[in-house]
Design a protein around this nucleic acid. Structure first.
Length: 861
RNA sequence: GCCGGGAUGGCGGAACUGGUAGACGCACCGGACUCAAAAUCCGGCGGUGGCGACAUCGUGGGGGUUCGAUUCCCCCUCCCGGCACCA
């Protein structure tokens, strides 16, 4: 065995062994329990970032651990290869998005290999290839047949200078990111998927996902947003009706105005002869489309000069147009109850509208309406015949009344909206439709799929280049055969990522989207990815899986059995603000931190010029803040194992992880210590006698107990809790104890051999390359990758005496050692006899004695 | 604005089901080895008071429940993720 730990030699050797033996290429084996371990596939942005390294290390640790537990483990990898950044890169460099994307994939694949991830590359999936996206198109056509996919209008950001649709990300403070032009809202025809049909199912099934984090389920529940309410029609003076939906029908008699969206027909009609209204509506047209913008902007409105008739009181209620009412939500109109809704309250205050209380607190107290609305449920007042009813009674009474009169009905509503998948962009999956002047919109016949995206175009920022590409555009109508025009909108990239996990399990099938292999592997047993995907990607995947189920393509309802949402990777941000010009950011690698005697930070200087730089806290690694760390450089300097060890040790997987060069250094030191420990043991001579557990000295028994306690802990930490950081800490603690265990006797060496074997096996999921070499050094023929996870020897865990902590009035005052099988009376006796305890109990009557078995006693005096 | 999460020594974190706050690592201080440095090894390391045994305060802030609260409840502050066209 080599004395020095040299990852640059042993890591490629281990990787070559796995490659040559096809260690991670797996097939369907019904005789073994399967385990599908999946990480969210990367967008091929150019290079791996630390978030990827963290994500895939977590997945790889679980892959290798479950494999050692005897499972048939699949860990595939692919590329979420369509998307906006490729078009931006194309604009910047004049290179087609396809070339940029494929180059990036080649580079990043080699990076993944250098990190030693146990991936089955035979199943690689790339979403921008026709053999993948043809099935997007195929399933879209099935959805069209089912009425799940449909066409209607939707609102987009429009850049009037570039004459192009902008993504929300490309709108900065209401202006186009390239042109600086004020962005307008525009309504255009789009395709939607009726995810709302599955709203009830998607919501209810959350209960059957015990393997998902509560916070993610809660976020999805709130996103779907089921509510029960009443749909009510108000008569409009001069003809017509105005439909609204409310979850608070009990406040109906408190309605003092109505508010409609700028795009609402009533607003449009009223504006026809009113220039002020026209100006206001035009202004509403210029606000952003995101919910964050709409909810935080100033709430404004104008009266339309139209009145609705209150369905109970018959009063005239003014109708306003308001910028916070959206045509795309519900009916595009709301009834306003300022006394019992905070937004209505603020709007009424601003415009001097009437605030009319109709609910009083049930406990008889007074509701103060001089500062804010009263939002609680209570008892109805000022509501005529409905006075005195509570929320439920009022709900029922109003529902019955309106249902009898045919002017309203009970209704379950969802906050969830249908999924608009049309993108007016080039680098995406073509929507397989054809526009015929005579036959309208026609689906592309199945036997003409895939509609192949030309890969040589270069977008220039002014619209979709497909619209100028005759070879793509020109086609024949599948119905009448006359010349027709191909649809140029492409699909949202969330479509690509909504089912790729099925395709890994049916890789290479050219005749079907999925086959029987998917039934073997699905559902995914463990899914790991960023918390930022908690809602959209995970909800769309759950929806898509249900559509596939209803089409008979799969038997599973839920794609992901267990979910681990990993935190982000952060790093320091350093900058200088020059008197003039832009802020300059400096990479933390180029900055020296200055500390005082106690190690507390006092400042930082740029190494290049020795001058101070300003610390701007910590933030996610990004290009713009120049605080990224290149995984490649890390692997080159320390090796993949050190990178993996640091990532797993620095924080629990669900929390954010702060980068630390010193921490990496510490991980590297541990790797060297581990290597030296095995080396020193192996140098002790060839061959180790078998362990005789009955012939051990107390010191040998003690160290062996620690070894098996550690094994029990790391098995629980990795297998159940997924707290890799505490598992690693426990092994470090054990290594510290082993370093002090200097026993060259025959049984001493046997104990050490067992200890090191358990350490190497236990660490092999985290640092597989070093363990591959160390396992051989410990005298094993078989590779560690093919070994089983070690088992705890219960006999090794037995203790004769235990220490119990004694508190007096909740404060720690002593410790007593009692036999392991001592009962409460014995512990009480020992505790009260303790000198430190007596100091505080002396002469005082004991009011209570609390005993927590084997751990703690509390004497209350 | 709304939904979700978080805050513990100089720093990252540990304390799993209400039971010893600070495991493990980093930084720092001291020592050994060395001509010296690096590497390595050993020891110390929350604040305050005390020579010391020890006492006392201490888990973002304020209140509550409990024999006992980092953990549960209420209110507040700040930070992070998401908000439907970034992925």
């Amino acid at each position: 065995m080599q004395e020095r730990y040299e990852p640059s030699i042993l890591e490629p050797a281990a990787q070559k062994f796995w490659d040559d033996n096809g260690s991670f290429a797996v097939g369907e084996d019904p005789s073994r329990p399967k385990y599908y371990c999946l990480c969210m596939f990367p967008y091929p942005s150019g290079r791996l970032h630390m978030g990827h390294v963290r994500n895939y290390t977590i997945g790889d640790v679980l892959t290798r651990y479950m494999r050692m537990q005897g499972h048939n483990v699949l860990q595939p990898m692919g590329w979420d290869a369509f998307g906006l950044p490729a078009e931006n890169a194309a604009m910047a460099n004049g290179v087609p998005p396809a070339k940029w994307t494929y180059d990036n994939i080649a580079y990043m694949k080699q990076q993944l290999k250098s990190l030693g991830f146990g991936i089955d590359w035979t199943r690689e999936v790339t979403t921008c290839r026709p053999d993948y996206y043809r099935w997007n198109q195929w399933l879209f056509l099935r959805m069209l047949e089912q009425g799940i996919a449909y066409r209607t209008t939707g609102v987009v950001n429009w850049d009037p200078v570039d004459q192009t649709v902008l993504a929300n990300e490309q709108v900065i403070d209401g202006r186009g990111w390239r042109t600086g032009a004020l962005v307008e809202k525009r309504e255009i025809p789009m395709y939607y998927l009726a995810i709302t049909r599955y709203a009830e199912d998607l919501l209810g099934a959350l209960r059957d996902l015990p393997g998902w984090p509560e916070r993610v389920k809660l976020m999805q529940e709130n996103w779907i947003g089921r509510s029960e309410g009443l749909e009510i029609e108000f008569e409009v003076e001069g003809g017509g009706t105005l439909g609204v939906y409310t979850t608070r029908p009990d406040t109906l008699c408190g309605v003092t105005y109505m508010a409609v969206a700028a795009e609402h027909p009533l607003a449009q009609r009223a504006a026809r002869h009113n220039p002020d209204l026209q100006a206001f509506i035009a202004e509403c047209q210029r606000t952003g489309v995101t919910e964050a913008v709409l909810e935080t902007m100033e709430k404004r409105g104008m009266p339309l000069g139209i009145h609705a008739i209150h369905p109970i009181t018959g009063e005239r209620v003014p109708v306003w147009v308001a910028n916070f009412v959206l045509m795309s939500y519900g009916t595009g109109a709301v009834m306003a109850v300022p006394a019992h809704d905070q937004r209505d309250y603020e709007f009424a205050r601003r415009y001097g509208l009437r605030i009319h209380q109709v609910i009083r607190p049930a406990d008889g107290s007074l509701a103060k309406l001089d500062e804010e609305a009263y939002l609680e449920h209570g008892v109805l007042i000022n509501s005529g015949q409905f006075d005195g009813l509570d929320f439920d009674e009022a709900f029922d009474a109003f529902a019955k009344l309106f249902e009898a009169q045919g002017r309203g009905r009970r209704r379950v509503n969802f906050r969830l909206r249908d999924w608009g998948i049309s993108r007016q962009r080039y680098w995406g999956c073509p929507i397989p439709l054809i526009h015929c002047a005579d036959c309208g919109v026609q689906p592309v016949p199945d036997d003409e799929l895939p509609v192949v995206l030309p890969e040589e175009l270069v977008p220039d920022g002014s619209g979709n280049p497909l619209n100028r590409h005759a070879k793509f555009l020109e086609c024949r109508c599948p119905k009448c055969g006359r010349p027709a025009r191909r649809e140029t909108d492409t699909m949202d990239t969330f479509v690509d990522s909504s089912w790729y996990f099925f395709r890994f399990a049916s890789a290479g099938n050219e005749r079907a989207m999925v086959d029987g292999r998917a039934n073997y592997w699905m559902p995914v047993d463990q899914y790991t990815g960023g918390i930022e995907h908690a809602i959209l990607h995970l909800l769309y995947s759950r929806f898509w899986t249900r559509v596939m189920r209803d089409l008979g393509l799969t038997a599973v309802d839920e794609p992901f059995q267990n979910l681990l949402t990993q935190g982000m990777v952060l790093n320091e941000i350093y900058l200088r603000k020059p008197a003039e010009g832009r802020v300059v950011y400096f990479n933390p690698a180029d900055v020296d931190v200055q500390v005082d005697e106690k190690g507390a930070r006092v400042g930082a200087v740029l190494r290049a010029d020795g001058q101070p730089v300003e610390s701007a806290g910590i933030g996610t690694m990004s290009k713009s803040k120049n605080n990224g760390v290149d995984p490649q450089a890390l692997v080159e300097q320390y090796g993949a194992d050190t990178a993996r060890l640091f990532m797993m040790f620095a924080a629990p997987p669900e929390q954010t992880l702060e980068w630390s060069d010193e921490g990496v250094e510490g991980a590297f030191r541990f790797m060297k210590r581990l290597w030296r420990a095995v080396h020193a043991h192996v140098q002790g001579g060839a061959g180790v006698e078998p362990l005789n557990t009955h012939a051990l000295s107390p010191a040998q028994r003690e160290i062996r107990r620690q070894v098996h306690e550690t094994l029990a802990k790391i098995t629980n930490d990795i297998g159940r809790r997924r707290t890799f950081n505490t598992a690693i800490a426990a092994v470090m603690e054990l290594m510290n104890a082993l370093a002090k265990f200097d026993d060259r006797s025959v049984q001493g060496r046997a104990v050490m051999q067992e200890a090191l074997e358990i350490v190497v096996l236990g660490l092999s999921p985290v640092v597989p390359h070093a363990c591959h070499a160390l396992w051989k050094s410990l005298g094993h023929e078989r590779a560690v990758i093919d070994e089983r996870w070690p088992t705890v020897d219960p006999a090794a865990l037995v203790r004769e005496a235990i220490e119990v902590v004694v508190q007096v009035n909740g404060k720690l005052r002593g410790r007593v050692t009692v036999p392991a099988n001592a009962d409460e009376a014995q512990v009480r006796e020992a505790a009260l006899a303790d000198e430190g305890v007596q100091k505080y109990t002396d002469g005082k009557p004991i009011r209570k004695f609390v005993y927590v078995r084997g751990k703690l006693a509390n004497v209350v005096v």
